[in-house]
Design a binder for these strands. Sequence first.
DNA 1: CTGAAAGCGCTAACAT
DNA 2: ATGTTAGCGCTTTCAG
Lengths: 347, 347
Amino acid sequence: MTEPSGAVPRPTLEAVAAHAGVSRATVSRVVNGGAGVRTSLAEKVLRAVDELGYVPNQAARSLVTRRHDAIAVVIAEPETRVFADPFFAQQLRGISKELTAHDSQLVLLLVEGKDDYARVGRYLAGGHVDGALVFSVHLDDELPAIIRKAALPTVFGGRPEVNEQRVPYVDCDNRGGAREAVRHLRALGRGFIAHISGPLDQTSAVDRLDGYRDVLPDADPALIVQGDFTPAGGERAMRELLDRCPDVDGVFAANDLSAAGALRVLHERGLRVPDEVAVVGFDDMESVATQTDPPLSTVRQDIEEMGRLMARLLLRGLERGAAGNEIPGSAPSSIVTPTSLVLRDSA
Amino acid sequence: MTEPSGAVPRPTLEAVAAHAGVSRATVSRVVNGGAGVRTSLAEKVLRAVDELGYVPNQAARSLVTRRHDAIAVVIAEPETRVFADPFFAQQLRGISKELTAHDSQLVLLLVEGKDDYARVGRYLAGGHVDGALVFSVHLDDELPAIIRKAALPTVFGGRPEVNEQRVPYVDCDNRGGAREAVRHLRALGRGFIAHISGPLDQTSAVDRLDGYRDVLPDADPALIVQGDFTPAGGERAMRELLDRCPDVDGVFAANDLSAAGALRVLHERGLRVPDEVAVVGFDDMESVATQTDPPLSTVRQDIEEMGRLMARLLLRGLERGAAGNEIPGSAPSSIVTPTSLVLRDSA
DNA sequence: CTGAAAGCGCTAACAT
DNA sequence: ATGTTAGCGCTTTCAG
């Protein structure tokens, strides 16, 4: 461990003031932008800051300003998914970039189990952060309640299933993207287009299914089978599909992972892709879509951008709150980002 | 945004004290575990806390205790990798679990570019966190210097290339794992075992190469070709290998991603795996290793556990620092975790 | 433009 | 066992 403890006591404002021969107030002003301080003095202060290696104590600062320049990212994920999936890493990157630009820090709260909600609630309410970005994939009323209690400005990642509080969210156009995928399959002349859905307790899965139905309202229900966003689920679903409707000549899978599973089964059964069965996925997870055989055509969503937008939405709200104070009905609204169809070789 | 601002002022200790008819000190005691407070009084306080919805203000607390119950995770990654790779997500999960158990928060610091170092340094020095866990994959002297300046207890993830400060780290037994992989290939009777290495500015890549050399000190240098831990790099390397040494009958790739690339090329050239060429990877990234054709034999490292260990090492040091104060030479030492060979079908 | 002084909400001696 | 009292390091009126 570097510098175990009992380390050099950090210099305080006081020390800098003494060193520069000015008052604490002046040092404070300089440190915070230096508005209204004579240049010569400011320079002297800056020099002192530098010489002493002064860094403001954030706890002291927050205590009076009530700002933290930090926002929490809450990820409540059912165990498994987070780490089969570059999704969050990418989203985090977008968030991080935006926050950095606003000099804000990112505090990550991973919710692993039921007990964690209390801890997270305490943290959110504890005045550590200025706002929260929350990802709660499942039907999950704990988090919204916690957020309400914490009374913290919040933006959701993905459309929440229940949202009476009208918390703003950022999501991609799942439904529209699905429509585009299915239309593409239809344009390819496919007559039996199936859908491997995601778990229907997630809005993204529901929305993608809805998109499929928009285009194919009269599709045989046997063509719709529920997967779970995993390759294994995709395999299972594809097998079932093939058994039920051997005529299937198009598959829209609700995500790339299930599409990969489907592809594997198709391969195994000796069905040529895309000649006999065309397949389209969703997400455009590069590590998956480019590695399948054949490479997967899929609906792309700009995940990093979504992260950036979430952060921007939150920060904007914070600024507005700080400045304009309570303009009723002016709550920031949600953002739905566009998707695009990426054609590779599977359809 | 929930509760835009101008929200209800949170109750303070003072308020709770008044409400319960005791002094602030008593409330403070109760809130902090309640040692040495009569049960009846404590209950009264607790009730007041509950009724007012009191939550301690952490800034105020930190200001006096100088503890934050938060540690920073610094990830300095060359742009691309973080999000092709479940690696960090998994490690984060392990870290998060351990921190949670110690009621500590995780503050994530993503370093995206050169400019970010200053920001991170400021943050680390700003007294926000009690310690830091840092992942710096590349030869990178900025971070160590920053950490020294911040004088913050730190543990590295992965063996750092330079480490005069003897900062403790947690890494898996890259070299031993590599040896095991290569020995397995040799036990399979392969006579021309190649190695697709990672970028040699990373210690993990170097160590794995060293492991290969341990077992095959006399291997033809032509059998060693540098990849970059990506599938594309693996493809390139495999092609080169095949051109240079058509006799290759075994490949140890420095990670699963490059192994996947190699597999693709082998496939493409019509070489049967494992019959004609056996392939072993490294990492056991499930989303990759189980999805290749054939499924990949690989060296497993328990990434989540490594995360947990990093956190534990740091926290332990923190406790010791707080309690025992400066036992010289007692700096926590590094941990090297074991690997294991996972046999699937590729070797 | 600069300084003096009053807290922010909490903990930790020190009294009692 | 409980209360009293000083600050922790900073920002921010308010005077000058």
